[in-house]
Simulated scan of single mutants.
Amino acid sequence: MSQQGAALQSYNNELVKCIEDLCSKRDELHRQTILEEEEKNRIQNDIRVLTERLAKVNESLAKKMAQRNEFDKTIAETEAAYMKILESSQTLLNVLKKESSTLKQHQ
């Protein structure tokens, strides 16, 4: 009977050790889960912050592109008007030279 008691005690000790090992593994897994949840929360927060920043940068870029397009339009219109002034000046100069020449011939 003492052999059976010793075997039963041995089984009991082994069973307790197995349960303790399982509890230890569960606790380690729980610790890792908590760490990963914290990391997940940090990453989600970073994504939120970066998404907000991206939206602000996109909005700023859109405004600046619209302003640049307005500058381009104004520059093009101004250059076209300036070219007309140059052409008119050239025409006026030619007319004046012709008139001056005509007037000199009549003297």
Rank of each mutant, 00 (worst) to 15 (best):
D46V: 12
A76D: 04
I85Y: 05
A62C: 05
L54Q: 06
Q9L: 15
E28Y: 06
K40C: 11
N58E: 15
S88P: 00
E52W: 04
V57Y: 01
K97I: 06
L96A: 12
I47W: 05
M65D: 13
Q4Y: 03
T102M: 12
M1W: 11
A80G: 02
I85C: 08
V49Q: 00
M65G: 02
H30F: 10
A7P: 00
V57Q: 03
M83Y: 02
E38W: 10
E77I: 12
Y11F: 14
K63L: 03
L61S: 04
Q9Y: 00
L54V: 13
A6P: 00
R48L: 06
K73A: 11
L103Q: 06
V16K: 11
D72M: 09
N41Y: 04
S10E: 06
I43K: 09
E99I: 14
A80I: 06
C18Y: 02
A81T: 06
E14Y: 14
Q4K: 13
L103S: 04
T78N: 05
L35I: 12
F71W: 09
I47A: 05
E79G: 03
T74Y: 03
I75S: 07
Y11K: 05
L8F: 03
K64L: 10
E20Q: 14
A6L: 12
K73P: 00
A80N: 10
Y11A: 15
L86H: 04
N94T: 13
A80L: 08
Q9W: 07
R42A: 10
E79K: 15
K56R: 12
K97N: 01
K64W: 01
S100E: 08
H106F: 14
S101I: 04
Q90P: 03
K73S: 04
A80Y: 03
L92P: 00
T78W: 02
K97P: 00
R48P: 00
T33V: 09
A76G: 06
A66S: 04
T74E: 09
R53N: 01
V57K: 06
S89G: 04
R53I: 02
Q105L: 09
K98N: 07
K40D: 03
S24R: 13
C18P: 00
T33G: 07
I85G: 01
L93C: 08
H106V: 15
V49A: 13
L54R: 15
S60N: 04
A80F: 05
T78M: 02
S88L: 10
E99A: 15
V95M: 05
K84Q: 02
K73Q: 11
N45D: 01
L50D: 02
I43A: 02
L8Q: 03
K97T: 09
R68F: 01
S2Q: 14
T74Q: 15
L86S: 08
Y11W: 12
L8I: 12
M65R: 14
S2I: 07
Q67G: 02
N41S: 11
R26C: 09
E77F: 00
K25P: 00
M83H: 07
C23D: 14
M1E: 13
R68K: 12
R48V: 07
Q4V: 07
Q4E: 10
